[in-house]
Design a protein around this nucleic acid. Structure first.
Lengths: 154, 154
DNA sequence: CTTTACTCGGCATATTCATACAATATCCAA
DNA sequence: TTGGATATTGTATGAATATGCCGAGTAAAG
């Protein structure tokens, strides 16, 4: 017997969470046990972490484990860093405005991710074909953002 | 002194969670204390429950509290019930197919919510102007779903 | 002014979850 | 096959969260 690899177990957990009302990790362990997979709560805790499941309060004192698309959205910075390294050519600041120069056609896509950053200092973005205009609250704010963006290349 | 009503505190919590990387309720309490609001972790726990905040694993052993749109989406059944009471005129079953008759133009919107139910028994839906076809896995499944839908009116 | 009914929040504690550590297990290069 | 590096897991325990109970505050009713 060996099937129950970690991966298989995690797949099962995702399914469980999808279809059943699960409120504790102990419960998950029980369900798995019923399917012949015996692991402890500790292991489930690690799985839950890796799967980025979430314990959502129902508001009435109940809780339910859920998978969440938030997990993907979580690493916006990484997403942005990748795009910057691939497509950004140049950046400049003029007072509270940042001008980001990208490879042809990529401005919109990158601006979208910048928006997702949801930074207070950024008022908004405008994207054309290969240029993004990032409008910041102030010159200082713009400089801070610029520094941050430059770090993305490292 | 009286301002710091529960509502105000919760608004603050939502803001905190939005803008800071918060990983425990104790941390929330600290931030609030810094703003002059002194409450215990127990209270925060209740707030978190009511606000339906979620502690999202970052995958690396870190955690961050987040607000989540999942919370709204959670009560799909309620959403469906409301629409049914308002717009559904008639329902019928033919073997594994359910035909739902709605007020003119509402079929697509209601079908959308039916899809969100994400029920195993439902294979898919097709919506026209005022008719939804719900395709179920079997006649029994269809009957079960029909019963369930009829209960939505009560 | 009482009484009754609620809401709110602290305290203490129960429940639930995360993790340091040590024991295997697995994989891979030589 | 062997040694060493890496992964995976359980045990024990600590950290974090949830909750029963109670008292204080408030408002409406009597």
């Amino acid at each position: 017997m060996n099937m129950p690899s970690k991966e298989y177990r995690q797949r099962l957990i995702e399914e469980l969470v999808e279809h059943e009302f699960i409120s504790t990790q102990a419960e998950i362990a029980e369900h798995l046990a019923a399917r012949g997979i015996k692991v402890t709560q500790a292991t489930i805790s690690r799985d839950v972490n890796e799967l980025r499941l979430v314990r959502l309060p129902a508001g009435n004192g109940q809780h339910r484990y859920r998978s969440t698309p938030l997990a993907a959205q979580e690493d916006v910075v990484g997403e942005l860093a990748q795009r910057f390294r691939l497509f950004v050519r140049d950046m400049a600041r003029g007072d509270n405005l940042l001008v980001v120069n990208t490879d042809e056609g990529h401005a919109v896509g990158i601006a979208y991710v910048i928006d997702k950053l949801d930074r207070d200092e950024i008022v908004g973005t405008l994207a054309g074909q290969n240029t993004i205009l990032v409008i910041c609250k102030s010159g200082d704010a713009a400089q801070a953002i610029l520094d941050e963006f430059e770090d993305l290349f490292t």
